[in-house]
């Protein structure tokens, strides 16, 4: 009975999941590009840039995701109209920027100063040193911590529900209200879907970490 309905409704859940994955990909990409930029600024930039990155990180790490979503969609959206999806990408993407900037900054600072000095001594410019020496090592070391960011943002996409993005959680609640009950079953299926995507993503990231590991170091790409 319930299962017949579930089978009938499953395409809607898949559609919701697809929207959620698009949101996830967009916000992580935004967070990656801006986060990497901020982290370079905060490690190598002028003090004004460092101050800016510090304030940015403080602000976006200090506000709940739901409040950010409401702020962007209903607040800023009143001045600059935007779709719920775009508002969610920006709100969650900027928050992810703050967290990813911290991951990359820590990884960049962990690159051996001696190697940076050797690169400069060979005549590489500051920028060339960051590009050829610091980032290739820092990005490898970021994959581990970045799996946390992936998991956390995947789950955060469900919050976009509150501003009307029809992602997985919202599809589920539509189904629950149509079915008049069966809440447990529907949300159990939804929970399983989030869980599977989370596991698959992390498995992929760990595989990437192993593939990118520098020969000569033991363990999962970890350098000691």
């Amino acid at each position: 009975m319930v299962f017949d309905t579930l089978v009938a409704e499953f395409p809607f859940l898949l559609r919701g999941l697809w929207i959620g994955l698009q949101l996830l990909a967009a916000l992580l990409t935004l967070g990656f590009v801006l986060g990497l930029t901020l982290s370079v600024m905060s490690v190598y930039g002028h003090w004004t840039l460092r101050l800016f990155t510090l304030l940015f990180e403080r602000v976006f790490r200090g506000i709940p995701e739901i409040v950010l979503l409401l702020l962007f969609f209903y607040g800023i959206g009143e001045l600059i109209p935007m779709s719920p999806f775009i508002a969610a990408v920006i709100a969650l993407g900027l928050r992810s920027t703050a967290y990813q900037a911290q991951i990359f900054r820590g990884a960049m600072q962990s690159v051996d100063d001696g190697e940076v000095m050797a690169a400069r001594a060979l005549g590489l410019s500051r920028l060339a040193t960051i590009r050829h020496i610091v980032l290739p090592q820092a990005l490898r070391r970021s994959i581990g911590p970045w799996t946390n960011e992936y998991s956390s943002e995947l789950k955060a996409t469900s919050l976009a529900y509150v501003i009307g993005v029809v992602e997985l959680t919202r599809q589920a609640s539509y189904i629950v209200s149509n079915l008049q009950g069966n809440t447990l079953t529907v949300f159990a299926v939804v929970a399983a879907m989030y869980f599977v995507v989370n596991r698959l993503g992390n498995a992929g990231l760990y595989a990437l970490e192993r593939k990118m590991a520098i020969p000569g170091f033991e363990g999962r790409g970890r350098e000691t």
């Binding site: 190697e115 050797a118 001594a121």
Partner: peptide
């Protein structure tokens, strides 16, 4: 300075090879 440094080799106590 970068072009000048390129003309001055530098060998470090800690080698400082590029790990990656």
């Amino acid at each position: 300075i970068n072009q000048l440094r390129a003309q001055i080799g530098f060998v470090f106590q800690e080698f400082n090879l590029f790990t990656h």
